[in-house]
Amino acid sequence: MIEQLAGSWNYIIVIILMMTGLFMVIARANLVKKMIGLSIFQTSVFIFYISLGKMAGGTAPILDGNPDTLYSNPLPHVLILTAIVVGVATTALGLALILRINEAFGSVEEDEIIAAKASQSLARPKRPTSEAAE
């Protein structure tokens, strides 16, 4: 049991981390905090993948010419390199949207934005543009 627990230690913690991140995404109303939750969620998945590739007694998969050397699995590393970049791209786009939302609604709190939508969508002119410009 202990042995199994030791073997799964990384995984168990990783799952707790994932769920912490996911919890933030769902439960927090602050849009920035959601993004941070998302990045924690994703980073935890990265650790999960890298843990899968670990070989006991292995080293980084950089060939040293010695045929007896054990290497960890390079494939998860490759995947996660891609995933990290994708994750940052998501974050960047999310933040850009948050900035625009803040401009348009004056808030980055989901509850307030939804309330603003409800109260103003009827009274506000459908296109804020042309009227304001004239």
Binding site: F46, I50, S51, G53, K54, M55, G58, T59, A60, P61, I62, Y71, S72, P76, H77, I80, L81, I84
Partner: peptide, 8 residues
Amino acid sequence: VNLDAVDV
């Protein structure tokens, strides 16, 4: 690093 994924 500890898991041998230095590039990552």
